[in-house]
């Protein structure tokens, strides 16, 4: 059932998005761990289609919000609108009221709009005119981000970045995959081809199963040691936060479940580590200027290889 779920989701998404199996698997881990995902890649690497197909095969509600520089928080969470007919204020819910919200190009919106998502992401509710409204369950923000070198982008504040469980990088596809993408696009893309692989009650059952996945004390110590190691590394100015560890343990659980296990092994942690830490670690600027710091992902891998897992 567990491993079937991963392969079934990947199989369905593959019908419309070619060569994104790894990324699809990570999205599933993030969803089952009740986390949010940050997708980073240049325009045109199937980020939106991936999100749509993923939501469809899980039978989840999906909405997309295109973030722009002139956007207001109201455009995301909604607000009270005066109804001329009934002469009353009515709640008009924003696109955040869905299961999967695709926040497209999140870093094009000004910080106050980005912050509007914070409450939704953390508390699973929004406050409109002092009234708290619960969001549907499950709720997941899938935000796409353009690389910072692009024009007209605002960097996401660390506090908001920390709320994303994983960052999934979507690089350009290989030549072989690119040929397949072009071939696929010769005929119209049909999202209807994507079939739902799990029902809503089954999905809810899976969420509770993931929460039952055992994490031994030694694995918890291992996680803490990794965090300490990131903080003591001279090349890092901001190491892993406690929230990062919470996200790491939840995502490791979801990965263990999808691998058909009822307990977490060090390999689950190692598999999720780069995706959970890559957007959280800040490298020391002086070391970067000296050119002595590798890419952050390489650094994370170096750090974890210095920490002995429980054996």
């Amino acid at each position: 059932m567990e491993t079937d779920l991963r392969s079934n989701v990947i199989e369905e998404v593959r019908k419309v998005v070619v060569g994104r199996e790894e990324e699809t698997g990570l999205l599933l881990v993030s969803l089952l761990a009740r986390g949010h995902a940050l997708l980073e890649g240049v325009p045109g690497v199937s980020k939106t289609m991936l999100a749509k197909a993923f939501s469809k095969c899980l039978g989840l509600g999906f909405k997309r919000a295109q973030f722009t520089p002139d956007m207001l928080p109201l455009d995301i969470i909604g607000g009270l609108i005066f109804n001329m007919k009934s002469r009353e204020f009515e709640l008009r819910k924003g696109p955040v009221f869905t299961n999967i919200l695709l926040a497209d190009e999140i870093n094009r919106a000004p910080p106050k709009v980005q912050s509007a998502l914070l409450e939704a992401m953390q508390e699973l509710q929004v406050t409109i005119e002092g009234r708290s409204e619960l969001l549907p369950v499950p709720f997941m923000v899938m935000a796409t981000q353009n690389p910072l070198e692009f024009q007209g982008v605002y960097p996401l504040p660390e506090g908001e970045l920390d709320r994303f469980m994983v960052k999934i990088k979507l690089p350009y596809p290989s030549k072989l995959v690119e040929s397949a993408i072009i071939k696929r696009n010769l005929s119209p893309m049909d999202l209807d081809a994507v079939q739902q692989v799990v029902s809503q009650p089954e999905l809810m059952e899976i969420f509770s199963r993931v929460e039952e996945v055992k994490v031994s004390d030694e694995i918890l110590d291992y996680l803490a040691s990794i965090a300490q190691e990131t903080r003591s590394d001279q090349r890092v100015s901001l190491g892993a936060s406690p929230r990062a560890l919470v996200h790491l343990v939840h995502s490791s659980r979801a990965n263990a479940y999808l691998d058909g296990r009822s307990f977490v092994v060090p390999d689950d942690v190692k598999r999720m580590l780069v995706h959970v830490l890559t957007h959280r670690l800040k490298l020391d600027q002086s070391q970067i200027l000296r050119g002595s710091t590798p890419d952050v992902d390489v650094l994370i891998r170096e750090v974890v290889e210095r920490v002995k897992p429980p054996r």
């Binding site: 092994v265 060090p266 390999d267 290889e305 210095r306 920490v307 897992p309 054996r311």
Partner: peptide, 24 residues
């Protein structure tokens, strides 16, 4: 037995990092 295996792996592959897992 697994302690023995760990020792043997370290001997055979001296470049194995401290953070290696059983599966690796």
């Amino acid at each position: 037995a697994f302690g023995f295996l760990e020792k043997a792996l370290r001997k055979k592959f001296p470049d194995l990092p401290a953070g290696f897992t059983w599966r690796e």
